[in-house]
Write a protein that binds this DNA or RNA. Structure first.
Length: 412
RNA sequence: GUGGGUGUAGCUCAGUUGGUUAGAGCGCCAGGUUGUGGCCCUGGAGGCCGCGGGUUCAAAUCCCGUUACUCACCCCA
């Protein structure tokens, strides 16, 4: 008990690892069919990339970054999210103006850990550059939905909103809220200047009443954004994707400029229910030093998908090897030879190399959930045929070494 | 960052008003006439009772601190 994990981080191993593998495999397979390509960026970046990109005033930048000075005194941060890094890489490497990319990797935020919330967590994300059409927004949302489906997530709910309000909207909203200020909770009074839309989303009963009748952003979109938002909605509907427009939804990252969306679930408790979120950010590339480029994307949290899948499916069991080799202590070399040849034939198999009793080896085969046990003892060596035992029904058959792989494959 | 709950064996947990060598179930290992798993039986290994301090003749038990986990707030994936 000497060393312990650091706060808010985790180890992932059997049987949970198989769920992680399947989530990643599902996502990668969907990315291939949508023709998005992998981009790998560093885990560390200059701190200003995020303070500029995400917004100086955001919680992530103000209090949640893992930052440190390196040996040369550079101010470094462990990335709290993926988008700014990908944008940096897009600009720095002069990638094709139109680029569709995905990434998988860990992010770091110094927060109080909670269900579905870690200090180091994994995101799968996509960023699409160079396409300002509503078709691309719809494509990205459909892609997100396809991954959730492929990963086996049921009952995810899609909320969308558009943040491209006309010039007067925020002023109008602030004025409205100022008048109701006395009825708002403390938190909302603070939010008023920084993120007035958030006040619309407060769960506090007093705030809800005070906020009734407030001007809605969806009724104050710029003409272009309004048309685009309508088109996105009709494209989603045509694609068979159901959604709810939620005019109170805001994201915590300041770079979103138009459509934003969130997939949520009721499987993670009341608060950490967002499993995937994203939106359009048409100014970020320029803000980070590139030329003005439209872009849209999203990120999903692997831990949260994992929790949802676990809640849906209950106990997780990892598949065992197809074969487990059991040997008399005289014949460990023969067992080693067999396990290698079965592996060369594509059979998933294992054996223990210690000198142990048959009973003990059978127990191991049992606990590893092996499909078959292949026994190599004196009798087998004398006859030239090994015993292959079906662990499920107990039946046993003698087969020459060369035929074992085919026999096992023939009976899955 | 704020507030609540909890830390005893690998896991899930007991542990009486403070009182001798701290327990159970599961798991693990080994046996049950030396070639066969699951069920059953027997035995075994494995705990500075989260850490530090205090009260006491005596602390897993009471008090303080600290740390980790956990739930909620905030925020987010």
């Amino acid at each position: 008990m000497k060393y312990q994990r650091l706060r808010g981080v985790k180890d992932v191993f059997s049987p949970d690892n198989s769920v992680w593998e399947s989530i990643i495999a599902a996502a990668v397979s969907v990315f291939k069919t949508y023709n998005y390509s992998l981009i790998i960026t560093p885990t560390i970046e200059e701190i200003s990339l995020f303070s500029r990109g995400i917004g100086e005033a955001s919680d992530i930048v103000m209090k949640e970054m893992y930052d440190f000075n390196d040996k040369k005194g550079r101010h470094i941060v462990l990335r709290p999210e993926g988008t700014a890094s990908v944008v940096r890489a897009y600009i720095e490497n002069s990638l094709p103006e139109k680029s569709d990319m995905y990434y998988i990797g860990q992010m770091f935020r110094y927060e109080r850990p909670q269900t579905g919330r870690y200090r180091e967590f994994y995101q799968i994300g996509v960023e699409s550059f160079g396409d300002a059409t509503p078709y691309k927004d719809a494509e990205v949302i459909i892609l997100a939905s396809a991954i959730l489906k492929a990963a086996g997530i049921k009952d995810a709910v899609l909320n969308i909103n558009c943040l491209a309000a006309d010039a007067g909207y925020y002023e109008k909203l602030k004025n409205f809220l100022e008048e109701k200020k006395s009825g708002l909770c403390g938190d909302c009074k603070n939010k008023l200047s920084r993120a007035p839309i958030r006040v619309l989303d407060c769960k506090n009963e007093g705030c809800r009443q005070a906020v009734a009748g407030a001007p809605l952003i969806t009724e104050h979109l710029t003409p272009g954004a309004g048309a685009s938002f309508s088109k996105i909605k009709s494209l989603l509907t045509a694609a068979g994707i159901s959604f709810t427009v939620n005019p109170a939804m805001v994201r915590g990252l300041d770079y979103y400029t138009a459509v934003v969306f969130e997939f949520t679930t009721d499987k993670l408790g009341p608060q950490q229910n967002t499993i995937l979120a994203g939106g359009r950010y048409d100014n970020l590339v320029e803000e980070l030093g590139g030329k003005k480029t439209p872009a849209t994307g999203f990120a999903m949290g692997i831990e949260r998908l994992f929790e949802v899948l676990k809640a849906q499916e209950g106990t997780i069991t990892e598949a065992g090897p197809e074969a487990f080799i059991i040997v008399d202590k005289e014949f460990i070399d023969r067992g080693f030879e067999l396990v290698n040849s079965l592996r060369n034939s594509g059979i998933r198999c294992a054996m223990g190399y210690q000198e142990r009793s048959f009973k003990s080896q059978f127990r191991e085969a049992e606990s590893k959930k092996a499909g078959f046990a292949v026994i190599i003892g004196e009798t087998e060596v004398n006859t030239g045929k090994y015993s292959v035992k079906n662990m499920a029904d107990g039946s046993q058959k003698e087969i020459e070494a060369a035929g074992i792989a085919a026999y096992i494959k023939g009976r899955p």
